[in-house]
Write a protein that binds this DNA or RNA. Structure first.
Lengths: 343, 343
DNA sequence: AATCATCCTCAAAGCGCTTTGGACACTCGA
DNA sequence: TCGAGTGTCCAAAGCGCTTTGAGGATGATT
């Protein structure tokens, strides 16, 4: 049942039916009611393509599924981020069109998005340092916002990011204040821009106290539990082991926790752990009021919300100058961090 | 730059340009080359809506982001599943349109998918026992395949599922063979069909050896690490604690592992743990050759592949009778399970 | 020279919707 | 009685593509 048929069955023109359905004022209340009722009865649904073609709006935004750089690992953040974004978008009638950023050439990846009309804008995730996709998107003239950012070109596009440098600076300060001097950093892959910033924040905080990092206490890898376990275990076996771990995700922290426990040490007493916590719904940091890990927390679900909100704003007014949102992660104190031993 | 302009700039008709671009034989090789070259130079991209309207194919499939029943928890499986599906779909030129299954009425949820023409078919995930969405999809006459299934109406629609009952039967047998008699089940939410089946497999295996389950050793909740920890810790404090845990996800197993360790017990020696492992890329079960947990393994990434493949088949031939894929999970042996103590 | 395949190309009719620019009937004040 | 104003409705022109049914060149065949 299309508009033509519906109009015919009502003895009205397509124009009138369309207007009645879309709430235009040029239609009498009686007619509108009659049309609405018939549409419901016949299960009429406008064809989104036709409507989109006529209006010029796709009512959809594109999202590229990020794969952690060069790894076959799907970003665990994705599900919560997209859930957040989807809530906002759905409430405004927008759909999400997903593509997979695989190994092929970037240009090729954005192929389907680019086929004009599929989407009104895009959200880009997990930018690498010096990511070239941003140039590509700008060149295409499609509205987009980046979740995260690329250091060099901060002000040329819209982004939403947490202050990763500040977060890790704060976290490091926290450990330094507790008397820790040998602090290990279990970071994510530092080709990712956020991991790079976190490392900077860590080093900065150390430097401010006149400390230099021990490269033997720094690791950078895809953020799995196994990685956290392996590296923490290795570091704890060192002649001069760390008294604290700063990790980039809850999974890594859990791995570190396991390494600490299996060495007969007590987390929070013998060895401290501070982590970043993306607030993933399926990976909560203890009970809401009783966190297990001391953490810099910033729910990625909220990030999804905000990115979507920004993108919709940009779509409504494509010519506005680039704008940004920077979120501060808050430091949540848990039992996993405590005074450095031997003090 | 649209087809009309491109044709004009070449002094050709739209027909010829369209045919040249889409590989129809009625165009001379010379013309085709000339057209392709001009299209590239002008950065011409066909409008997907217009093309879709003309061909009747949307070249996209719908995917509903599942939320674990009544919980605000995003299914951690989602990211890997969708990555798998996206690979297959992308290779065939299909996009993915996502919607969020929120709290509203189901009918409302499928709204955008239903607006005709958005998608050619759908993949439904995480069905509940007696899920009504299936009836809805059937009634709509849109091709769909279900990841998982709903017990009562197995043969009325296409589904892909792992043999959850058999997997948990096997896992339970494994523990029984090792001499365990008090086995705890840390299951997912049993409103989910798969969790229900797992429980059945567990109980069946016990029954076959003349054992009955102790309800104090059975829990059912959203599958988080915290849940695994809390429930395992509680059960280990019982007067007659379990000697083995059977858990529904790696995260839960990790929680149990933590509970075991913090009680000063050794996993695999004092207490065994067997889990189901969805093979999530960001949550590997140890090293590829050295798993940590004994597990029934079935990568959800592959499930995504298969579901997509099935859906494409269904889209190509919508009238075929419902067909199914049942995958067997394989039992991976790790150091987390061993002979029951006191034997 | 006329006929006929064989290529290559085209004009035009959709696909299903929105939207522009009236048309028609009716009311109301002058 | 007229003109303007108002409230409803409509025909038709797009939106950008694919596809049908023909048409104009060629060169080969009669």
């Amino acid at each position: 049942m299309n508009l033509k048929d519906l109009a015919a069955s009502l003895g009205l023109s397509q124009t009138t039916v369309s207007r009645a359905l879309n709430g235009y004022p040029e239609v009498s209340e009686a007619t509108r009611k009659r049309v609405a009722e018939a549409a419901l009865r016949h299960g009429y649904r406008p064809d989104s393509r036709a409507r989109s073609l006529a209006t010029g709006k796709a009512m959809a935004v594109g999202l590229v599924l990020p794969m952690t750089a060069r790894q076959e690992i799907v970003n665990p953040i994705f599900a919560d981020f997209v859930a957040g974004a989807a809530e906002t978008l759905a409430s405004r009638g927008y759909d999400i069109v997903m593509s997979l950023a695989g190994e092929e050439e970037q240009t090729q990846i954005y192929r389907s998005m680019l086929s004009k009309g599929r989407v009104d804008g895009m959200i880009m995730q997990a930018p690498l340092t010096g990511d070239r996709r941003i140039g590509l998107l700008k060149q295409l003239g499609m509205p987009f916002v980046v979740h995260g950012r690329v250091s060099d070109h901060d002000d040329e596009y819209c982004w939403m990011d947490i202050d990763n440098r500040h977060a890790f600076h704060t976290a490091t300060d926290h450990l330094l204040d507790l008397g820790h001097r040998r602090i290990a950093l279990l970071n994510g892959i530092e080709a990712m821009d956020f991991a790079h910033r976190r490392r900077d924040g860590f080093l900065e905080a150390l430097a401010e106290r006149g400390l230099t990092a021990d490269t033997a206490l720094m690791a950078s890898e895809a953020m799995t539990e196994h990685y956290g376990h392996r590296e923490a275990a290795r570091m704890l076996r060192l002649p001069d082991p760390p008294t604290a771990f700063l990790t980039s995700s809850l999974l890594v922290a859990m791995g570190a926790q396991r390494a600490i426990a299996s060495r007969g040490l007590r987390m929070g007493l013998d060895v401290s752990v501070v982590t970043h916590d993306d607030g993933l719904s399926y990976l909560p940091n203890g009970e809401p009021d009783a966190p297990i890990f001391t953490a810099t927390r910033s729910p990625v679900h909220d990030a999804g919300h905000i990115c979507a909100e920004m993108l919709l704003r940009l779509i409504d007014a494509p010519q506005t100058a680039p704008f940004h949102t920077k979120l501060e992660a808050c430091l949540v104190l848990g039992p996993s961090s405590g005074p450095a031993p031997n003090l």
